[in-house]
Amino acid sequence: MKPLLYVRAESVGEAAAAHAGRPEARYLGGGTNLVDLMKLGVERPEVLIDISRLPLDQVEELPDGALRIGATVRNSDLAGHPLVRERYPVLSQALLSGASGQLRNVATTAGNLLQRTRCAYFQDVGKPCNKRVPGSGCGALTGVNRDHAVLGHSEHCVATHPSDLAVALAALDAVVELAGPGGGRTVELTEFHRLPQDSPDQDTVIRPGELITGVLLPPLPGGTVSRYRKARDRASFAFALASVAATVQVRGGVVRHIGVAFGGLAHRPWRARRTEAALLGSAPTPEAVARAVDAELAAAVPLRDNAYKVSLARDLACEVLGSLTART
């Protein structure tokens, strides 16, 4: 039996100290993904540093109108927070579209961002996976890949990031706050998750020992509306086949602010900058929206089983942007 050291951290400093010098340490939040991966043998930590009791469980409004979400705020609490519901419906909707009630009650904000792909090849230690064992190959590339990436993948990895929350945060220009051995730093959410390239074992830009302490949500321009929509295999408790998060402000018939991100299509939440650029300053007619969405999805390279994702994402985005621009 592999012995496991369990440390309950009471402060960020304590957590960092427990992690120092232990590459096989893992921070434990809600454990809804990490513990599963331990059972599967995918994760084999030597130390579990329980950070779920750190004083990072608050959502606070900052003087500039931003919201600061603590790393250990539970998904259910975040989804139900009055300020989130009022100002960032896209975030609340994304959270509530994910997992199940029981899981959302336990899962944390930071843990959600750091969850691993649900690629079946990654989760099975008997199969090749460059993310799990660099250099072992990618089983999904020529295997069963209906659920896999159509954007930004490489020959080394075609996995998708499973989070709904992260997709909404990507559209909201959220910023990840990190504490680490070298001090604190912030990283834009859209830069936090990586594309696989030739090192898919690195999901994010987080450094060894670094700890997410919170997520900053900048205020949205007044009159901005937002929405999250997800297509999935069953009505609840299923990961996105494709999803869209969008924020839009239209003034005088012209798009003044826009943030669009796709989920289920790539190794990270896919911020649709081309779509945004095409619409910003333009009238969001259905034709313009469709052209703008197509501009983003033109880069898609489907695999054997997932060509449907391109048209699915297109229709989702057109519907969401159409409904939002009609409302604002």
């Binding site: 090849y121 008997g126 199969k127 089983g139 020529t142 295997g143 069963v144 209906r146 295999d233 069953r234």
Partner: peptide, 15 residues
């Protein structure tokens, strides 16, 4: 909703 896919490379059920 239900369907088990077979991975052609390994011969294993997927998912």
């Amino acid at each position: 909703t239900e369907g088990g896919g077979v991975d052609p490379a390994s011969g294993a059920f997927i998912g």
